[in-house]
């Protein structure tokens, strides 16, 4: 029933995808650190000018900086492009990993925790690549890569399970609908979560430290708007995932809603995300407070995924 060659190939592809993600991450990091070198090229000048005193002097220093930027422009663009290229390549290999995994077990490739993490990170990277293409969000790349590499690392080291057939409760076409929606929403919320963390860091100061990690990150308002849009995309999908789950539960377990721990926490997650969307439109709650609410919602999402599967026994215990 299980094709061992394809299963092996899938594992090799996973390894390849992780390595490529790491290289992409290094590429993004190099992109940032070349930026740092650019600033480092004018330190003496800047020191003197700052020493000479006054805000005007600092302005002068910045002007000098923009002049030298042109010289390094070519090299910087190359590193950025390299990172994106590797990122897309990693994404392709990751996709092939999922497809071969599904072919090896002859079923939808989301039936256990290892496969869920793989699918969720794939969804997150897909959302990022779409955003990169539409809104040029390459500044998000390094941070998302860190999250993806950590998640896939956890999946391969601790959550790995050989491909095999599904248990009878999962024998339904609803697995393709419900789990795909849940995975897509989770991937989307992951991207939103990374953006929100960046927003909170970025909102702390008016201008990022030159050469710092946040140098390329846009201003707080843009980040907030991007995170909001991303969550607006994810929220209806999450709602759909819950409803599709209810339809499936209705045919598998004899009721559409029974406050199973997984159901309870997906409801909590839904409510807190709804709270975020409302808070953002409420005076006195928008900005930092709303962002923290959305991070609480993301924490609920993660707890629902890991905590409920491992700590609490319920009908969703597929761990």
């Amino acid at each position: 029933m299980v094709d061992p060659h394809l299963a092996h190939l899938s594992n090799q592809l996973m390894l390849g995808a992780v390595l490529l993600y790491v290289v992409a991450m290094v590429g993004y990091a190099a992109d940032i650190s070349f930026g740092r070198r650019r600033v480092a090229a004018v330190p003496e000048e800047a020191k003197v000018l700052v020493g000479a005193g006054g805000p005007e002097a600092v302005e002068d220093a910045q002007e000098t900086e923009t002049e030298t930027e042109d010289e390094d422009e070519r090299r910087r663009v190359d590193w950025g492009r390299f990172a994106i290229l590797l990122n897309v390549l990693a994404w392709g290999v990751h996709g092939a990993e999922i497809v071969t995994r599904g072919m090896a077990a002859d079923r939808v490739p989301w039936g256990n925790m290892y496969e869920f993490v793989s699918a969720i990170t794939f969804a997150a990277v897909t959302v990022y690549l779409v955003m990169l293409w539409r809104y040029k969000t390459n500044w998000l790349g390094p941070f998302l890569m860190v999250a993806v590499v950590i998640a896939l690392g956890i999946a391969t080291i601790w959550l790995y399970d050989d491909p095999g057939p599904l248990r009878p409760a999962l024998h339904s076409y609803w697995i393709a609908i419900h789990v795909t929606a849940a995975v897509t929403a989770t991937g989307t919320f992951t991207v939103a979560g990374v953006s929100t963390i960046l927003y909170l860091l970025r909102a702390r100061r008016t201008a990022p430290k030159p050469g710092g990690l946040l140098e390329r990150v846009p201003d707080a308002e843009t980040l907030d708007r991007l995170a909001h849009r991303t969550m607006m995309f994810g929220f209806p999908i999450w709602t759909f995932a819950i409803i599709a789950g209810a339809i499936w539960a209705d045919s598998a377990w004899g009721r559409y809603w029974g406050w199973d721990p997984k159901e309870t926490w997906s409801f909590i997650t839904w409510v807190v995300y709804a709270g975020y969307l409302h808070a953002r439109a409420t005076a006195g709650w928008r900005g930092r407070k709303a962002a923290i609410i959305s991070l609480i919602a993301f924490a609920c999402l993660l707890f629902n995924f890991f905590g409920i599967n491992y700590l609490v026994s319920g009908m969703h215990s597929y761990a």
Partner: peptide
């Protein structure tokens, strides 16, 4: 809206014990 938000979070908070303590209905 403020009250609605608080109630929304209370509903979420209220369901939490239901997922950790055994429930008679389940």
């Amino acid at each position: 809206m403020r009250t609605a938000l608080v109630l929304l979070f209370l509903v979420a908070l209220g369901t939490v014990p239901g997922s950790f303590l055994p429930q008679r209905g389940l």
